[in-house]
Design a binder for these strands. Structure first.
Length: 706
DNA sequence: ACCGCCTAGTTCGCAGAGAC
DNA sequence: GTCTCTGCGAACTAGGCGGT
């Protein structure tokens, strides 16, 4: 055994502890194979990973001879690693060099193979070493043995009086303990003393207690439990708190002494939301705002793109308030602040340096209507509240619903549509069951009463045998009644309630309600060319801004400046130095932008399209439904060109950093090429042809069947 | 016990100023 | 062009107070 072994053991914290045998804590040292690893280290082998101890336990497998190349393998791994490092450094300097990329992947493959060989070899080697070193009279062997002894030994023990025993005493203490525990020689009769148990069961009852129970008995017992009771449920004292409201002091004290619950005080939280007796105030949900703020603060230091922030808003921030919004009607101020925080995060990552480019109202439209698909908190709140209203109208069984029905209902009825069945449960005057709306909108209570009906009349009460029972004079007084046609009363069907939006009866859900109450706009035709599954999100975001005409271009700044100061600043497009920049100038009338686009448009199949934003978008829109690779590529390229030209413009403006147009167009093409390489495509003839144009090796692809 | 009056606290809508 | 801040009045509610 290598004499340096002991030093290495010391270097390893787990093993080093072995020396301090007096230390109680070190008694349970875990050696799990570390000595072996240490011994391998000393023989000049680098470790590759994996547990050597495991391999020892699993038993030897014989490796083919060519795998056992020893030091040669080790040398090869080191060499390949250096080579790989070198190539990667070169790639860092020039990320777009394709030859280097190819070399890297080749080298990486070789490196992985070599490391695998090395690992196999070392595993095998460790088994051989263990067998050889195990039984020899070496320091390593004795150390291992010593540690095993320590692990199984008790040096100090405390008895039940709290006296600590050490050394020899430990052994004695154990013996006396077990002598007492197991009992002494003497009376071993199993008959207890008669006075030990005063109450005894007679043989009959005792027999009953141990007989087997039938399934029928279990069933009967279960069904005997009340519907609202759980078997064996008793209030838990520590988990329960008692709250008083308007209770006099002596009564309160008496109740407290009987119940032995702890008295609680409001405000208290239940299921994560505050339990309060009055309406919800701003200070009750301030915590929600603070939570959101905390999240944003956590993300502040990350460099996130607009698209990244949008994703966080959609997936994290937008869901934080949902639970509260489903329980409470949130105070307007809370909604206002939550949205202000989201807004601030989206546009300026929590700091207040930059301003919103698009109004929040528009941002919160669905993507199909030109927004970003964020939902307004207020709208969500309304729609979630509506699900409570829904359970009221559906008479869901609950105390709360019953209370609402007796105290609060009459105001809400008119908003819902009833399909008449037998007409019994529908109010003739207040429910909406015909196109003209609730009849109470048109007919006065006085008229209803003088015609012999009452407030509570149902549809069934005013319709019989195919005709209406109201006086014919009503048609003169309330001409709107002429529009009400006969209805079909089906005595076997009950009246059903529907959520009705624009004459369509929909099944109820929070999202249909949200869709009905939210702010809406005309659908935009460009949604599919901005947002599609293969899009590059940060490109898409800039294109979205362009589509809305909201990039902060010079023509806009000039306009405000004119309005404010009445003079023209000296501005010019930083790409071509001739005109001031504007959306139509940048995409792609500008000489610079045009030459960038020129190199790109051919690949997009848009050589014949004029380099004008309107022409380009209408060309794309006419193909926006298509999901063929050709059209996806065109959208990707346009978005890429827009993104990089806008980036270039800003780089020149803020960083004083300029690139020539062909660098830009190459960057665009490369970026799109990498995107294409990451797609999963069905390999049709057209796809193969497209990929060949991009010089993408079809072999590299994850193939998708069907 | 019930009613009306008053106050404090709150939200809402609106408008204008100002910042970028 | 968008957002924030500010101020204003209207409207509402809870709770206190005093009178009947």
């Amino acid at each position: 055994m290598d004499p340096t072994c002991m030093e290495n053991l010391d270097a390893d914290p787990g093993i080093g502890n072995l020396k301090q045998s007096g230390d109680l804590a070190s008694k349970v040292v875990n050696i799990d194979g570390k000595p072996i690893r240490s011994s391998l280290k000393t023989q000049g082998m680098s470790q590759v990973g994996g547990s050597y101890a495991q391999t020892v336990e699993k038993g030897a497998t014989v490796l083919p001879k060519d795998k056992l190349k020893g030091k040669h393998i080790n040398f090869r791994v080191g060499h390949l690693r250096e080579e790989l490092d070198g190539i990667q450094k070169l790639i860092d300097r020039d990320p777009f060099d394709l030859e280097l990329r190819r070399q890297e992947s080749e080298c990486q493959k070789k490196f992985l193979e070599a490391s695998l060989d090395e690992e196999c070899f070392l595993k095998q080697k460790s088994k051989v070493d263990w067998l050889a070193a195990g039984d020899q009279n070496t320091a390593f062997f004795h150390n291992t043995l010593k540690s095993k002894n320590h692990r199984a030994r008790i040096d100090v023990i405390m008895d039940r009086e709290g006296v600590v025993h050490e050394g020899e005493d430990v052994q004695k203490l154990f013996v006396t303990h077990y002598v007492n525990f197991l009992g002494c020689a003497g009376d071993v009769s199993l008959e207890p003393y008669p006075e030990l148990f005063s109450n005894r069961l007679d043989a009959n009852v005792a027999g009953n207690m141990v007989r087997s129970v039938t399934d029928m008995e279990i069933k009967n017992a279960m069904f005997a439990i009340g519907d609202h009771k759980a078997p064996g449920l008793v209030p838990s004292i520590p988990k329960s708190t008692i709250y008083f409201c308007n209770v006099q002091e002596p009564v309160r004290m008496t109740i407290l002494s009987i119940m032995s619950f702890v008295e609680g005080s409001l405000p208290v939280k239940y299921l994560g939301v505050p339990l309060i007796s009055s309406r919800l105030l701003y200070k009750d949900c301030k915590i929600l705002v603070e939570k959101l703020e905390g999240k944003i603060l956590n993300w502040r230091n990350r460099m996130l793109s607009f698209a990244g922030r949008l994703q966080l808003i959609l997936s994290v921030l937008s869901s934080m308030h949902i639970y509260w919004a489903s329980v409470f009607i949130l105070p307007a101020r809370v909604i206002l602040e939550l949205e202000a925080k989201m807004r601030g995060f989206l546009w300026s990552q929590g700091s207040s340096t930059s301003r919103a480019k698009v109004s929040w109202k528009s941002v919160c439209l669905p993507k199909s209507e030109g927004g970003l698909g964020i939902r307004r908190i207020g709208d969500m709140n309304k729609s979630l509240m509506a699900s409570h209203v829904w359970s009221i109208l559906m008479h869901r069984k609950s105390l709360w619903v019953e209370w609402i029905h007796s105290h609060r209902l009459p105001l809400l009825r008119q908003f819902f549509w009833v399909n008449i069945g037998n007409g019994i449960s529908t109010s003739a005057w207040f429910d909406k069951w015909c196109e003209v709306g609730p009849l109470s909108d048109h007919i006065t209570m006085r008229a209803i009463h003088s015609a012999g009906f009452s407030r509570g009349s149902s549809v069934a009460d005013i319709y019989s045998e195919g005709s209406w029972l109201w006086p014919s004079a009503w048609y003169d007084t309330f001409p709107v009644l002429i529009n009400i046609h006969g209805i079909v009363i089906d005595n076997n069907a009950t009246d059903t309630l529907w959520w009705r939006v624009e004459n369509r009866c929909l099944p109820f859900s929070a999202s249909t309600v949200w869709d009905a109450v939210r702010y809406r706009r005309m659908e935009v035709n460009w949604v599919n060319i901005v947002w599609f599954s293969q899009c590059i999100p940060r490109h898409a975001f800039v294109v979205w801004l362009v589509m809305r005409g909201k990039l902060l271009t010079q023509d806009k700044i000039v306009k405000w400046d004119l309005a404010r100061r009445g003079n023209m600043n000296m501005m010019c497009c930083l790409l071509c130095y001739s005109n001031i920049d504007s959306h139509s100038h940048l995409f792609f009338e500008c000489k610079y932008a045009n030459s960038v686009w020129d190199k790109v448009k051919e690949r997009a199949g848009m050589s014949d399209v004029r380099a004008n934003w309107n022409d380009i978008t209408s060309w794309l829109c006419s193909r926006s439904k298509s999901r063929s690779l050709k059209n996806v590529v065109a959208r990707l390229l346009v978005a890429g060109a827009v993104y990089y030209i806008w980036q270039e413009r800003n780089n020149r403006l803020f960083n004083n950093h300029a690139r020539p147009p062909d660098i830009l167009s190459n960057t665009i093409l490369d970026t799109i090429r990498y995107r294409l390489m990451g797609l999963k495509l069905k390999q049709t003839e057209a796809v193969v042809q497209q990929l060949a144009e991009w010089k993408i090796d079809v072999e590299l692809y994850d193939q998708v069947d069907g």
